[in-house]
Design a protein around this nucleic acid. Structure first.
Lengths: 180, 180
DNA sequence: GAGAATTAGTAGGATGTCCGACTATTTGGT
DNA sequence: ACCAAATAGTCGGACATCCTACTAATTCTC
């Protein structure tokens, strides 16, 4: 979950100097990449801490949210993997745990006997609602950052995502309306 | 390593609409958080793919880089955990693999018999140099994004990190000069 | 139509990360 | 000095993620 507190008052500018001595080629890219990794660690840590109250992780939360928007709150696992941008085996793992906790149930696909549908349960829907409220309470781990700054951040991150072929009209890759 | 290609042409604006119907409270924060998660996934994926060539992961790379700046290219594991912002057990795990691959060696701390020093080996130094070059070649996973945009991104991310107590003068939390 | 190619889901294995617990040492307080 | 408290490192467990491989089923092609 990363350490929230560590006020590493050490100077980071010092670092650039260190690398400078070795002649770094892409300082801006390195700075952005390392900042991105650290920021994500901080935010994800806060989010997971908030979700822990509901025995959820961000991964499982995303899966629940995805199902909540699907027709009949149900979706094939392969499609879930595409939407969530994770490997099929990760979906299996995530659904295993959600099913274990009674938040979703697996059922055979009526038209395709190799497919399995994951469906939200009543309990799953309730937990999702409560968890969403909890995330909003902590502003999705974004601290006290003003909405304006958050918008700028989202735009900048869109550049990165765009370079990977992501749709970046907005920024909710996970909750995109599915065709399921 | 995440899917680079998936041109999810589905509209994300659609999403905001979906959430809007439910009355979302912190749309900007949610957008920023989800964008951050996805962007990090993309960038880390590229970085790890590039590092795979050297049997490294970003975690191990960071550890090697940290040691390379330390006095005598050596540092106590506890301090490494503080610098890298990871749990002590993660350091143990990382050093285990680096030592297994002959990139670092463990040795007892001369003045503190409970401490263990991790020291870069000649091979470790060479691999680090090559890996760094590889990362620069791919611009640390930042694609074709212009330096100016990267600067903006770094600044925006600094806001997030600052809210967690991180020093954000610059953006290289990992390579901060140590006191080791 | 029958076999080839593709797709869906899962099992097993490797990594990374965290947490709690445990041992060994060092520090600190009385 | 001596015992309590803090610190260093590791182990085992829980998760998340990827990859490879494998089975079952569907789709495509000739």
């Amino acid at each position: 979950m990363a350490k929230e507190q560590t006020s590493e008052l050490d100077l980071i500018g010092e670092t650039r100097r260190n690398w400078g001595e070795r002649g770094i080629r892409e300082p801006e890219a390195m700075a952005a990449a390392t900042s991105l990794a650290r920021a994500q660690q901080v935010v994800l840590g806060r989010i997971n801490q908030a979700l822990g109250e509901y025995s959820l992780t961000f991964s499982r939360y995303e899966a629940l949210a995805l199902l909540s928007f699907a027709r009949n709150e149900s979706m094939g696992m392969a499609r879930m993997g595409e939407r969530l941008q994770v490997h099929p085996t990760s979906v299996t793992s995530t659904i295993d745990r959600l099913e274990r906790d009674g938040l979703v149930i697996r059922s055979p696909h009526p038209d395709d006997r190799r497919a399995t549908l994951a469906t939200l349960t009543d309990n799953g829907r309730e937990v999702l609602t409560a968890a969403t409220a909890a995330l909003e309470d902590i502003r999705w781990g974004m601290g006290e950052i003003a909405d304006g700054d958050l918008s700028n951040l989202t735009v900048n991150l869109a550049h990165v995502r765009a370079s990977a072929g992501d749709n970046t009209d907005d920024s909710l890759p996970i909750f995109t309306k599915g065709t399921s």
